[in-house]
């Protein structure tokens, strides 16, 4: 299907291959995500959730199976190609924000564009627009340490959007926030999903958050055990 943005087929991921402690974490996962979807992946720790996220975020390659992201087969790509794919196709949002501490909010948002080779002027303009989108324009010159948790996460989301990625990959984005600011961040995701049509993959262990999304994918012991319609989205 043309509007399929993520297509995983029989993904197997093994660690310590060929060693006595060889470990198979994912046992042949198949999954499709369509353009504009807001899906959540839930599962207890040790279920293979993080491994799956790393594969989707092309931080890692599957041992077996194929992964097509936005029309590109990434399962066989080299390191350098993976960097480019991460840069252009994926926007990461981390639980711990992972902003570069010595540079201000604006520079942080510019960073993915810097690696993409976007000229300085354009970078600057786009970063400003993105900060406006997440309502952080007034904090553009602030260093991460001068921002609250919720503000940091909003800057991080703006950064994730910098290169118009195919998907936003959010790993426990509200995990380090109190429920009120967590709410604001979730609202921002919904807004981006609805208004901008951005595909979002949310990894969480909170069923409450997952209920908000369009589809809940539950993973347990390296297999997808259920896919259910979510509530709101």
């Amino acid at each position: 299907m043309e509007d399929t943005i993520i297509k995983l087929e029989n993904i197997v991921k093994k660690f310590y291959i060929g060693k006595p402690n060889e470990l198979e974490i994912l046992h042949g996962i198949s999954l499709e995500v369509k353009k504009g979807e807001f899906v959540s992946i839930v599962g207890p720790s040790g279920s293979g959730k993080s491994t799956l996220m790393n594969l989707i975020g092309v931080l890692d390659r599957p041992t077996e199976g194929s992964y097509v992201l936005d029309g590109i087969d990434v399962s066989k790509a080299q390191d350098k190609e993976l960097s480019a794919i991460r840069n252009k196709k994926i926007g990461f949002v981390f639980q711990t924000y992972n902003l570069i501490s010595r540079t201000n909010a604006l520079k942080n948002v510019e960073l993915p564009m810097l690696y993409a080779g976007v000229p300085a002027e354009e970078r600057h303009k786009r970063a400003k627009e993105l900060l406006e989108l997440v309502e952080m324009s007034d904090r553009a010159k602030h260093l991460p340490e001068e921002l609250s948790g919720g503000q940091k996460q909003r800057v991080a989301i703006a950064r994730a959007m910098a290169n118009n990625p195919a998907i936003l990959l959010a790993d426990e984005p509200t995990g380090a926030l109190d429920s009120q600011t967590g709410r604001l961040v979730m609202d921002l995701f919904h807004k981006l999903n609805k208004e901008k049509g951005i595909t979002i993959v949310l990894i969480t262990h909170s069923m409450e958050l997952a209920e908000e999304t369009g589809r809940i994918i539950t993973i347990k012991d390296g297999n997808i055990t259920s896919q259910a319609e979510g509530g709101k989205a």
């Binding site: 960097s83 990461f92 981390f94 570069i100």
Partner: peptide, 8 residues
């Protein structure tokens, strides 16, 4: 982080 954001 830099690598996740696309640094080679």
């Amino acid at each position: 982080t830099r690598k996740a954001l696309g640094a080679t």
